[in-house]
């Protein structure tokens, strides 16, 4: 996903010489081509994310489009106040890119698990939060972020994420989700590469006769409120899925919106509980360990679905 993103950024940078990329001394092998092609517009700020972000804000205030790049929580949590005061308050044209969403760096330990970042980034006014689900969405996220002025947070996976979109022809529209699969009994809303697990869960549930729609939400902020309104009215069950705490992040955002509707749908938020992961392992392993893999998700949805059917049967 990160390579697709950086490739797309290179194409944009070739067209627009205002684009700068600042890294916090990370991106070995990933940023090599960009730095070779645009040496004057590639800056290694060193291992100092606060200054990387302040510098990016300063450059943006002088008219540049500046991407900051690092991994996990370093370009977000480490320099949150620089993002809040210098970037967001000034509506500076800074695009914060974090590689390593969720458990992408599962083996490296809790410092490298990005599992609360959506929560703190979406809390900040003026920041658009993008969380693409596959390399193609990531590519389009790069194009979108260049074209749209203002601060962005772009949450990327690592490498090797499978393609989820088969058709290249879609485009990202501000605050719009993308339907990956239609269905009538439940809607699974996912953000990031975990949308792949949502599709697996939908396939498992289809065998049980439950028809699930699946949506990818590249925009966590702003959310696709129009779609949520439609789904809340039409569906018995809405499920959010994220590789992030189930509070404060994507599911939390969906809950905030849906709570304002006279909704028919029940909402089940699937994500991490109030926990850090002290155990390590591959992304696939940790997803299973925390119930975020397709099978666990299918099981959780089945339970929620049956609970809702019982309630409806009781006439409540």
């Amino acid at each position: 996903m990160r390579n697709a993103f950086v490739k797309a950024l290179e194409i944009q940078a070739a067209r627009d010489e205002n684009i700068f990329l600042i890294t916090g001394d990370l991106g070995f092998g990933v940023l090599t081509d960009f730095s070779a092609k645009f040496p004057a517009r590639f800056i290694n700020a060193g291992i100092c994310e606060q200054n990387m972000t302040a510098v990016a804000a300063g450059m943006a205030l002088e008219g540049k489009t500046v991407f900051t790049y690092s991994i996990a929580n370093f370009p977000t949590a480490r320099c949150l106040e620089q993002i809040r005061n210098d970037v967001a308050y000034h509506e500076a044209n800074v695009k914060i890119v974090a590689v390593g969403a969720g458990f992408s760096y599962g083996a490296l330990g809790m410092t490298h698990h990005a599992t609360e970042d959506i929560a703190f980034m979406r809390a900040l006014p003026k920041i658009t939060v993008l969380s693409p689900c596959d390399p193609l969405e990531a590519e389009k996220a790069a194009e979108y972020a260049v074209a749209a002025a203002g601060p962005f947070y772009i949450r990327l996976g690592r490498g090797g994420e499978p393609a989820i979109h088969q058709d290249r022809s879609f485009s990202l529209r501000r605050g719009k989700a993308l339907e990956l699969k239609s269905g009538t009994d439940a809607a699974i809303l996912a953000t990031g590469s975990i949308a792949g697990e949502a599709l697996k869960a939908a396939a498992i549930l289809a065998e049980r006769g439950i028809s699930c729609a699946v949506y990818s939400f590249p925009f966590v902020k702003p959310l696709d409120e129009e779609l949520l309104r439609r789904l809340a009215a039409a569906m018995p069950l809405i499920v959010t899925l994220e590789e992030h705490t189930a509070h404060g992040g994507f599911g939390g955002a969906v809950a905030e919106v849906i709570s304002g509707f006279r909704a028919r749908a029940a909402l089940t938020r699937i994500g991490l509980g109030d926990t850090f992961s002290a155990i390590v392992g591959s992304q696939a392993y940790l997803r299973r360990a925390y119930g975020l893999d397709g099978e666990s998700v299918a099981k959780a949805i089945l339970e929620a679905y049956e609970r809702e059917r019982e309630r409806e049967g009781e006439g409540i």
Partner: peptide
């Protein structure tokens, strides 16, 4: 030019501005 109040922000932003200006020959 810049809103401040939390300490330790201004020099980094000024450095970013200065770098952009140098690159543009301002």
């Amino acid at each position: 030019e810049l809103s401040t109040g939390s300490l330790g922000h201004g020099l980094g932003v000024a450095a970013g501005m200065a770098l952009a200006a140098l690159r543009d020959g301002k």
